[in-house]
Design a protein around this nucleic acid. Structure first.
Length: 108
DNA sequence: ACACTGACCACTG
DNA sequence: CCAGTGGCCAGTG
């Protein structure tokens, strides 16, 4: 199988623990392409058809739900996060620092 | 085959 | 402090 950038993004995204979140930049950085954070977002855009990929656990570096409009309905992202114990207020994740999961730290 | 665009981020002036 | 710009990959018209 050809390991493409997209597939790597999907794989890392699937590894995000329940109740934790990460950022586009963190994934890109882990894959060694830190300048390609926007491609991570695009990858997840294609990934939204695959329900095994928890795209709602990936937000931008501010903890803002930048991709919420790409779900079935905008509130779904916040609902999914709430189900996992992640509180969202004003489209931002509360205690983003505390919930943040860095693949480089956990996937050693 | 070419140009444009997209769920981002960090650096510069 | 705010605005602009470069970097990078894959899909679409």
């Amino acid at each position: 199988m050809k390991s493409s950038f997209f597939e790597d993004v999907y794989e890392v995204t699937r590894l995000i623990p329940v109740g934790r979140v990460t950022s586009y930049g963190a994934i890109a950085n882990y894959l060694g392409l830190k300048s390609s954070a926007r491609m991570v977002g695009y990858a997840l855009n294609s990934a939204h058809i695959d329900k095994t990929i928890p795209a709602h656990r990936v937000v931008n570096r501010n903890g803002l739900l930048s991709g919420k409009f790409h779900f079935e309905y905008p509130e779904q992202m916040e609902e999914l996060l709430a189900q996992e114990g992640i509180l969202v207020q004003d489209d931002k994740i509360i205690d983003f620092k505390g919930k943040f999961w860095d693949p480089q730290i956990d996937l050693i």
